[in-house]
Amino acid sequence: MLDFSLTSMLSSLFLLAEEAAPAAEGISWIALLNQALNGIGIVGILLLTGLGLAITFGVMRIINLAHGEFIMLGAYVTFVMQDFFKMDLLMTIPFAFIGTALIGAIVELTIIRRLYGRPLETLLATWGLSIVLQGVVKLIFTAELKYVRAPSYLSGNLSFLTNEAGTSPIAISYYRLFIIAVALALLALTMFLFYGTSWGRQIRAVTQNREMAKCLGVNTKLIDMGTFAYGCGLAGVAGAVISALKTVAPPMGQDYLVDAWMVVVTGGVDKLIGILAGSFLIGESNAIIAFMLNDPLARVIVLAAVIVLIRYRPEGLFTVQKRA
């Protein structure tokens, strides 16, 4: 009756794994390559969603649990623009940025500003904010799923190999390439803003020594507001771009919140480039483990790995060790 064998225990853990890879003929390298290529698509989404958080958490140290909701807001801006003004998805991106950045600025003025230096309170307040934003959007647009169309010139796949049957085992959709391109462009833009402009210099000055920056005539409150709004705007762009990939609904932001946090924590927040490394590591390991086992298990393993990582390197993998 009872099955006490070790194999049953193991199979309990890897039951679905066996189902996912029934043929024990060895790993198909072509399929693995395809999976790795599609992992790039995940990397793009992670990079987009993590970038805004890298600003609000990495630079300003604000624990923003409403980050997902800013992504959701961006998606809704795109939906509205496309639905009412028949705009192309690409055209809606600036509106998504401006719209969410404005809301971000208001949030900073009314909520975040009161809670600087109290991380746990900020965390709670932003969670309250996320509930409120979801509720308000639900009131306006109802809980109904909305759909955003991807531009027609971005449909189709880029294929690298074509076999006899005419299908291509290694392919990536143009839209995923587009996501990557947007993400990389935004990263480059952000890095330019931070390291190449006077505004960026002021932001870095404020994060390094707020009092001193104030003494030197930096308007720290304006900088705080601008930086937070910029981070939220980036989340809005992420939402605009992702909206065509998935359905738009009030709770959609929740799906991205934990992942965005994992990316930021893995990459470390010392350098913005860490976010690229973090999303690459998480996205690709997710894709490859999912290929070898299955999707849910890949997620569990990656999350567990990140937890272990936080335990040993809370400052992230790609942070230069500072001397005390």
Binding site: I111, L124, A125, W127, G128, V132, G135, K138
Partner: peptide, 11 residues
């Protein structure tokens, strides 16, 4: 929309 009310209360 009671969730909205909870959110406002929390804030």
């Amino acid at each position: 929309d009671w969730q909205l009310i909870v959110g406002i209360l929390l804030l």
